[in-house]
Design a protein around this nucleic acid. Structure first.
Lengths: 234, 234
DNA sequence: TAGATGTATTGATATATGTCATTATCTTTG
DNA sequence: CAAAGATAATGACATATATCAATACATCTA
């Protein structure tokens, strides 16, 4: 008999090796509180995890797979904010504002995530200053990354934006150099704020100049210095 | 004899009517702690308040005037993030990351600000959960606004972006309808991610269509519905 | 295996937007 | 007040980028 998606696994948070680093400062009793309201869920590639505009009830910790978070804008155009990999958590700004999701999340690989009730999370923020500070640290780093994204998207031309995307995938997501991605060309377009046709054209230029090797979704950055320069010069 | 810029005024935080709303949850003793490390500073129009890349040592509460915060990008191009008015505070993400400023701040009117030592601020975050939660609320609202900015800047065409800037100035900054701004055309360009010439052209179009009245830096939005529609349709 | 469906690629074309040069207007200052 | 300097406005032009249409390729499914 298969495990149901809402199965709460017996392995507790205290002994879990796959928990987000933000939980490092929690004691056994605090981890048990999280464990009590925790649910582990499996998502298949392409499945929507939560949708912009719906109530935000859970803290989500990704333990397996990969997830894209994206803002749904006008004319069915999306802007991908992050590609989240294990073990990172996803928590939008809605929790301390209007309790809503302000971006959507979708699995781009088969994924597993733990959902933790937000009441528990917020209680821990109030009672454990180290936890609160760690959370503020994470929020701040995300904010700093957003500033970089602002500059990339608004002040760089297409080659610079694609360079940024490729470097992001190599350094922050897959963390290897020849890397295989499950992102479509449309996803790359949604990360760089351009049309998919333009993405394809720029990738071709990079290939023709031997800056990258790209075969379908297998990428290898051959000339990192050159790619960095393209990122710099916009 | 004139007051020096570093003069610490005698009026305490406890009785101050000009303090940011985030301080509402602090008790007398906590406000006194802030008061002890507080310095009031006057800035003239055009003066740099702090610069991106320098150490971030203070929480800044604006009590008079107006301030633009902006990211300094490539090729001397800036991206204005916010126009801050009294009584709001300015606090970047650096405090909980690398202790650096990640954007610059400049007075666009003669301004007065209180600077509070960050050690005191961070101590209060740790010891007063209400204060921490209020701060998280503020950070979250800023983050949500940034998402809107992302969509405006990356998915809208110039008329939509200018519409967003005009509505922002009317609703969030000057809060009156005929309003007078001290922002240059270049500033409007830095808010909407375009060239100043393009700003001028779009403003002219809006004038020709009787959507706005614009005489130098005096603006009046004549047809709010139309401007909202332009903002929506991009 | 063949058809169907979605995704990727390419080329031709349209268009939004930036750049540059020039003139106009405002603001400062001696 | 006049000169100088900054800011604003306008037009001509260049170009980055999107759109549209056609084809190729891959992947699923019956």
């Amino acid at each position: 008999m298969p495990k149901y998606q809402y199965t709460q696994y017996s392995k507790g948070c205290a002994t879990c090796q796959d928990k987000a680093d933000i939980f490092a400062c929690l004691c056994q009793a605090e981890l048990d509180q999280i464990d009590d309201t925790r649910v582990e869920v499996h998502f298949k590639t392409g499945e929507l995890i939560f949708k912009q505009g719906t109530p935000n009830m859970h803290f989500l910790c990704l333990t397996q797979g990969k997830v894209k978070t994206y803002i749904e804008g006008y004319n069915n155009k999306n802007l991908i904010l992050n590609i989240v990999k294990p073990i990172e958590y996803i928590l939008g700004p809605g929790i301390y504002a209007d309790q809503m999701h302000h971006f959507s999340a979708m699995a781009i690989e088969d994924s597993v995530a733990c959902l933790v009730d937000l009441v528990t999370f917020k209680k821990l923020i109030r009672t454990n200053p180290d936890f609160a500070e760690d959370f503020l640290r994470k929020v701040s780093l995300q904010s700093i990354y957003n500033y970089e994204l602002f500059i990339s998207l608004t002040q760089k031309q297409m080659p610079g934006r694609i360079a940024d995307v490729l470097l992001y995938l190599k350094d922050k997501v897959y963390c290897t150099n020849p890397f295989h991605s499950t992102l479509s060309r449309q996803d790359l377009a949604d990360m760089s704020g351009m049309s998919k046709e333009s993405v394809i054209r720029i990738l071709r230029e990079f290939k023709d100049e031997n800056i990258i090797r790209a075969n379908g979704n297998d990428f290898e950055i051959l000339n990192i210095d050159h790619l960095n320069k393209i990122s710099q010069t916009g």
